[in-house]
């Protein structure tokens, strides 16, 4: 799936309409606890008219129901990096689960109760001498059915072009300066698989519970552009 030019994506939807949420926010708050972006009271665009028209035609012709659309939005909103963090924390505390995760990450995610649909997931493990990084150079494939929608930077030209050629320079921009003796393994999601980095468990976490460990697992640590937080 495609990517966004850094200067154009979403920027033209207003940022400064805090005065009026209007009557049209009945579908609730976003998963981050914020109201949906306030597009509803800005001028109707060509593409928004197309979305409304396509949606209505699909409903009118009996191909899709309004309830299915609402349910799909709800299902997608329910997916977030906390799902991946729970998987990672389980792998840190349960060696048998970790073995199953590395063997078949889709099955291991489902085993924890996550609805990941048809996602084909591969977990790649960071160790003392290996660091993994995920990218999609052809579009912006991402393990969205586990982690939710990707961050904007993941879809940019800059990330997609450079991650495969100068991953260490890209990682430095994310604040991660890897030693030369760490092997970097970049994974380009070119086809049917999606990838999850299993970060290394931070030192000094021996006494933490699985739930406390999960709180250390950031989204970026599961893409490979970051490391887990320190306790």
């Amino acid at each position: 799936m495609p990517h966004d030019h850094p200067d154009h994506d979403h920027d033209h939807h207003d940022h400064d309409h805090d005065h009026d949420h209007g009557p049209f926010h009945h579908e609730g708050m976003s998963p981050s606890g914020h109201p949906y972006r306030h597009d509803n009271d800005s001028p109707l665009t060509y593409w928004q008219r197309m979305e409304i028209a396509v949606r209505e035609l699909l409903i009118d012709k009996g191909r899709i129901t309004a309830a299915e659309i609402a349910n799909q939005i709800e299902a997608m909103d329910a997916r977030s990096p906390t799902n991946g963090a729970a998987v990672v924390a389980r792998a840190w505390t349960d060696p048998a689960f970790k073995a199953r995760l590395l063997h078949d990450a889709s099955a291991a995610s489902r085993e924890m109760g996550f609805d990941i649909g048809p996602l084909n997931l591969i977990a790649v493990e960071n160790t003392a001498d290996t660091h993994n990084l995920i990218v999609c150079t052809l579009c912006s494939c991402y393990p969205r059915n586990l982690l939710g929608l990707p961050p904007d930077w993941y879809k940019t030209r800059a990330y997609r072009t450079r991650a495969v050629r100068e991953p260490r320079a890209v990682l430095r921009e994310f604040g991660l300066d890897l030693p030369a003796n760490t092997t970097v393994r970049v994974h380009d999601s070119t086809a049917d698989m999606r990838y999850l980095v299993l970060p290394a468990r931070p030192a000094g976490t021996d006494t933490l519970t699985e739930r406390e460990l999960a709180a250390l697992v950031t989204r970026d640590s599961m893409i490979g552009t970051g490391l887990p937080l320190r306790p």
Binding site: V164, R165, E166, P167, R168, A169, A180, T183, V184, R185, V186, H187, D188, S189, T190, A191, D192, M193
Partner: peptide
């Protein structure tokens, strides 16, 4: 950047 770093892709 580092000749022994690797790139995996599905083909």
């Amino acid at each position: 950047e580092n000749p022994t770093d690797t790139l995996d892709a599905e083909l």
